[in-house]
Design a protein around this nucleic acid. Structure first.
Lengths: 241, 241
DNA sequence: CGTCCCGTTTGCGCCGGCGCAAAGAGACGC
DNA sequence: GCGTCTCTTTGCGCCGGCGCAAACGGGACG
């Protein structure tokens, strides 16, 4: 992990620091530690003491929780501008999951003590963190309800739609999930197996709704996916070509 | 809902306000609205604008999220001393679930604006809220992993163990969950049906692990339940009588 | 360029648990 | 006390999806 000089412009873009004045931002920049993180790096591990508050400047980080039997849940993908590991610092002090760099990244971090002082001095930071953690709580609650009450196909549709919103990139024939996403990853987000995900995606591909690829999904008919997710009648889907 | 005079002692006991000095607590008491809430009351509804931050002084509140198809998830039970609906106020401003009084309750609330001002003036409140919401996020993430990766029996065991920690009351032959808890409630916490919960509990009852009853569960052998939850070899369980 | 590894796809038997149906017991209101 | 409603229990057929196995193809690496 290679240290870098903090870039004030990118720190200013972090959601955690929105609404702060120039003096506050200057202090935040002064105490920030910025670095490159190579693809595949474990930034922190489940069960470790939560010593640092992290945020991502560039790249993509996967947050994965592992149970005692080795089974994994993909909790979340972190994109540029987002914090991670911060809630743990203020809630119990143990990271509840691993943070893995999916691609080469640029990250920034603060010690727990520094962030605590910043929050006491600038309550806006604490309120922003509360907003972020509260939204994540709502999302996870929604996923819990989906997993409790919906069949796999709908769950996969919901998961893909969330990913499109978070990491969708327009390409020629649809919207691509803009980072490597395997069938196993999708399975670990939706409580199923890679085989089931593969079968579902193959079926949708046959209907022109998605286009698959190795660690890759492109959504060609988002509205069809919404209909599946919401268990609505399917619109007629002309085969586009 | 019958207004009451705020009781400073019970407000002081709220987790949200721990670590505050007397001046802060006096201000909190001044702006608090306390009232009785009858059993069965809907305190707020899913989809409503999140206008009030709530906390419970006495009683038990169930937080339930309902999907578009009417299927329900029991998100959480709120006990005395706990806040509820507060995260929603600071995260998007819409309540994501209903809050229902399970028994007669005493509740307290503040307007969103008042709580926002209190948090700006006393950052400790925001940090406490962050701690509480962060712990809830961790719990829901853990439940999501359990639901994704464990069979029903283990999930029910985990759910009962959580309830024991939260609302367990020692009685003559074990630990009772100290509020009305139906098989349907347990099912809605664990992503299964009431029939499956009933079958599991009947089986455990036959082994002396629990004792059932109408809207009632008493855990007689907590260690056996832990072994089930963690998929450990079962200890020999002598039939106590 | 060749080889190896990993990800994807597909067939299929099996199983956990859903959900219908019915019976019984307890709580509640008149 | 009686009637009604709700909750719990249990039998059982059915189905969604798990997980084993095998084949194929693409990408990474030497």
């Amino acid at each position: 992990m290679t240290p870098l000089a903090p870039d004030p412009a990118s720190l200013r873009g972090l959601r955690l620091f929105s609404g702060l004045d120039a003096a506050a931002l200057a202090e935040i920049v002064r105490s920030a530690h910025t670095r490159r993180i190579g693809k595949g790096t474990t930034i922190f591990s489940q069960g470790d003491r939560a010593a640092l508050c992290h945020a991502l400047i560039d790249g993509r980080v996967k947050i994965v929780q592992t149970g005692a039997d080795g089974q994994q849940l993909v909790v979340r993908y972190i994109g540029a501008g987002e914090m991670f590991g911060t809630a743990a610092v203020f809630s119990g002090g143990i990271y509840p999951a691993d943070a893995l760099a999916m691609v080469d990244c640029v990250g920034v971090h603060w010690t727990a003590a520094t962030m605590g002082e910043l929050m006491e001095r600038y309550p806006r930071i604490a309120l922003n963190a509360l907003d972020i953690v509260g939204r994540r709580l709502q999302e996870v609650q929604t996923r819990l309800r989906e997993l409790s009450t919906e069949r796999v196909e709908r769950r996969v549709a919901h998961a893909l739609l969330r990913l499109v919103r978070q990491a969708g990139r327009r390409v020629g024939n649809g919207v691509e999930i803009d980072f490597p996403l395997s069938r196993q990853d999708i399975a670990e987000m939706t409580g199923t197996t890679l085989h089931t995900v593969s079968r579902i995606l193959s079926g949708w591909e046959g209907q022109g709704i998605v286009e698959g690829g190795r660690q890759q999904v492109t959504i060609r008919q988002p509205h069809a996916l919404v209909a599946i997710a919401e268990d609505l009648p399917r619109p007629e889907t002309p085969e586009e070509k």
